[in-house]
Every structure is written in structure tokens, then in C-alpha cells.
Amino acid sequence: EQYVVVANYQKQESSEISLSVGQVVDIIEKNESGWWFVSTAEEQGWVPATCLEGQ
């Protein structure tokens, strides 16, 4: 499942990744806490779901 990044995010923990507007990410896991585990071409990590929008 692919989502587009709609807000920049700077990682704050080692388990997170930074996002840039316009990036496309694959969703691996959706957590009810509002944090999703995603994959980019370069890395995987947790990001806030509020930064993502379905395609």
C-alpha cells in the first residue's frame, strides 16, 4: 500500500525516518498509536501517519 508524504518530518528517534513532501512510501504496518512503519527506497522506520496521504 503506497502513500504520499504531505508534510516534512525530521526523525527524532533511531527507529524513525525523516520524510520530505512528495516522497512515496510503502506502508508495512499501521499502529493504532498514529505511527506507521514505512519503507522507502533507502530505509525503513516509523513515521507519524499525519504526514501521509493515500494515493
Rank of each mutant, 00 (worst) to 15 (best):
E1C: 11
E1Y: 15
Q2D: 04
Q2I: 04
Q2E: 05
Q2R: 08
Q2W: 04
Y3N: 06
Y3V: 11
Y3F: 12
V4T: 15
V4D: 09
V4K: 15
V4G: 06
V5Y: 01
V5M: 04
V5A: 12
V5G: 04
V5E: 00
V6N: 07
A7D: 12
A7L: 10
A7M: 08
N8T: 14
N8G: 14
N8D: 14
Y9K: 02
Y9A: 01
Y9W: 15
Q10K: 07
Q10T: 12
K11S: 11
K11N: 05
K11M: 10
Q12S: 12
Q12P: 06
E13G: 11
E13W: 03
E13M: 13
S14V: 14
S15Q: 15
S15H: 15
S15W: 12
S15M: 08
S15Y: 11
E16Y: 01
E16I: 02
E16G: 15
E16V: 00
E16K: 08
I17S: 03
I17R: 05
I17H: 02
S18Y: 02
S20D: 05
V21N: 05
V21C: 13
V21A: 12
V21E: 15
V21I: 08
V21P: 05
G22Q: 03
G22E: 02
G22I: 00
Q23T: 11
Q23F: 02
Q23D: 13
Q23Y: 09
Q23L: 05
V24M: 09
V24K: 15
V24P: 09
V24N: 13
V24F: 06
V25K: 01
V25S: 00
V25C: 04
V25N: 00
D26G: 09
D26V: 08
I27R: 06
I27A: 14
I27C: 13
I28Y: 03
E29W: 10
E29S: 10
K30Q: 13
K30V: 06
N31I: 04
N31M: 13
E32R: 10
E32W: 04
S33A: 10
S33E: 13
S33Q: 15
G34P: 06
G34M: 07
G34L: 04
G34V: 02
G34N: 03
G34Y: 03
G34H: 05
W35N: 07
F37S: 10
F37Y: 15
V38R: 00
V38A: 11
V38Q: 00
V38D: 02
S39G: 10
S39D: 10
S39T: 12
S39E: 14
S39V: 04
S39I: 05
T40E: 05
T40Q: 15
E42K: 12
E42F: 07
E42L: 10
E42T: 05
E42A: 12
E42S: 15
E42R: 13
E42I: 04
E43G: 14
E43R: 10
E43S: 14
E43V: 10
E43M: 10
E43P: 01
E43W: 05
Q44D: 09
Q44I: 07
Q44G: 08
Q44K: 10
G45T: 02
G45S: 00
G45W: 00
W46R: 08
W46K: 06
V47A: 10
V47I: 15
P48L: 03
P48F: 00
P48Y: 00
P48K: 05
A49F: 09
A49T: 07
A49Y: 06
T50W: 14
T50V: 11
C51V: 10
C51P: 00
C51R: 04
C51G: 02
L52E: 00
L52M: 08
L52W: 01
L52N: 00
L52V: 12
L52A: 01
E53Q: 14
E53D: 11
E53M: 09
E53T: 13
G54Q: 15
G54A: 13
Q55R: 15
Q55Y: 06
Q55V: 04
